[in-house]
Simulated assay, not measured.
Amino acid sequence: MDNNNEAIIISSLDLQRIEELLEQPQYRDAAGTASLRAELERANVLDPAKMPANVVTMNSTVTVEDESGGGRREISLVYPRDADSAANKVSVMAPVGSAMLGLQVGQSINWQVPGGRALRLRVVDISYQPEASGELHR
Results as ranks from 00 to 15, higher is better:
P52H: 02
G69F: 13
N88T: 14
I126C: 06
V64K: 00
M51G: 02
V64H: 00
R72Q: 13
K89S: 09
E135G: 12
S133L: 15
L77F: 06
I109D: 01
A86G: 12
A30Q: 13
V123D: 00
A94Y: 15
N44E: 13
D29H: 15
Q16K: 00
M100Q: 04
V90N: 08
D66R: 03
A132W: 07
S98T: 04
S98P: 03
A53V: 06
Q24C: 11
Q16F: 00
P80G: 13
D125W: 08
L46H: 05
D29N: 15
L101V: 08
L15E: 03
E135V: 10
L77H: 02
I18K: 01
G70L: 12
A118Y: 10
A83H: 11
M58H: 01
A43V: 14
L121D: 00
A31M: 09
V124A: 09
G116N: 07
V105A: 06
A118E: 15
A87M: 12
M93T: 09
G134F: 14
E67P: 05
M100T: 04
T33C: 12
E131R: 10
V92E: 02
Q104N: 08
N110P: 08
P48I: 07
S91L: 15
I75H: 01
K89T: 04
R81G: 11
V55M: 05
N110F: 15
S76R: 12
V123T: 04
V92L: 07
